[in-house]
């Protein structure tokens, strides 16, 4: 494992590479099915499949799997109620889908030997275009629903109360930028967390391999990054859940703004 082999094995970027599985070009646009698409599909199938399986018995006294499914359900419902009120529950399927999709995507990324094209694990939430699409869906729904429900009253969101008229345009401009920054923040945070965590993991894992390959005393020192990787892996599982949660709860908060633009 020396020479190019080590470089290949320790390259922290390789895990983000995309491989085509079958080519699909529509009107000059490359829509190939890739390992990223594969993992998205796996996430969809696994979320709906696992939940359906858990609910297959639909017992009055739930078993373990059903309890987890119901816990997840109540968790998301509680999150919406707490942040957007009972009115927000009409977005429940959307928020649940969002949460489950991101959570499953993050968790799938934590399984390095998951059978996949390209022979490496892949986290689609570590690709900015995916998180960008997620946040665009959220903000489109917030703006669209806010405009439909409140009409022009939705723009009250940008007009804080108790500001002198002289600096009002300035403040409104800042509020608008602040609002636009929401999807950016949403998108960048998820992306950056997943990317940074996975790179960090891979870098420390790379240290193990390099030290192990160096032989002698270095092999013994290689134990240190090994423990680091173990700790980081635990942290990454936490982050994987936390980021899905943060994405979902911020979505709820923004939906709450669309429902009641006055309360800011």
């Amino acid at each position: 494992m020396k020479g190019p082999g080590v470089a290949e094995a320790t390259n922290p970027i390789k895990q983000f590479e995309i491989h085509e599985v079958f080519e699909l070009v529509v009107g000059g646009v490359n829509l190939s099915f890739t390992n990223s698409s594969y993992f998205m599909m796996v996430a969809t199938v696994m979320v709906s499949g696992l939940l359906a399986l858990a609910m297959s018995k639909r017992a009055l006294v739930p078993g373990r799997a059903q309890s987890v499914a119901e816990l997840l359900y109540e968790f998301v419902a509680g999150m919406i109620r707490d942040t957007a009120g009972d009115e927000g529950l009409k977005f429940f399927p959307f928020v649940f889908t969002l949460f489950a999709f991101i959570l499953m995507g993050n968790m799938l990324g934590m399984l390095p030997y998951f059978p996949a094209p390209g022979f490496h694990g892949f986290t689609f939430t570590s690709h900015i275009i995916v998180t960008f699409a997620l946040s665009m869906i959220v903000i489109s729904i917030v703006v669209g629903y806010g405009l439909i429900k409140n009409g022009l009253g939705f723009f009250k969101l940008f007009v804080p109360s108790g500001v002198p008229a002289a600096i009002m345009p300035f403040v409104i401009l800042i509020e608008i930028i602040s609002f636009i920054s929401r999807p950016v923040t949403l998108c960048v945070r998820l992306f950056a967390n997943m990317l940074a965590g996975h790179i960090l993991l891979k870098v420390f894992a790379g240290f193990i391999i390099m030290l192990g390959a160096a032989g002698g005393i270095y092999t013994a020192v290689g134990v240190l990054p090994f423990f680091m990787v173990v700790a980081l892996t635990a942290l990454e599982f936490l982050v994987a859940f936390l980021q899905a949660y943060v994405f979902a709860i911020l979505t709820c908060i923004y939906l709450g703004d669309a429902l009641h633009p006055g309360h800011h």
């Binding site: 890739t34 969809t44 959307f94 889908t97 275009i129």
Partner: peptide, 22 residues
Amino acid sequence: TYFASQLFWFAISFVLLYVLLS
């Protein structure tokens, strides 16, 4: 290179998941 592909497949899987779940 794969932005369009990812968006396309993301849309498919997300909508599919949404429909299945809801």
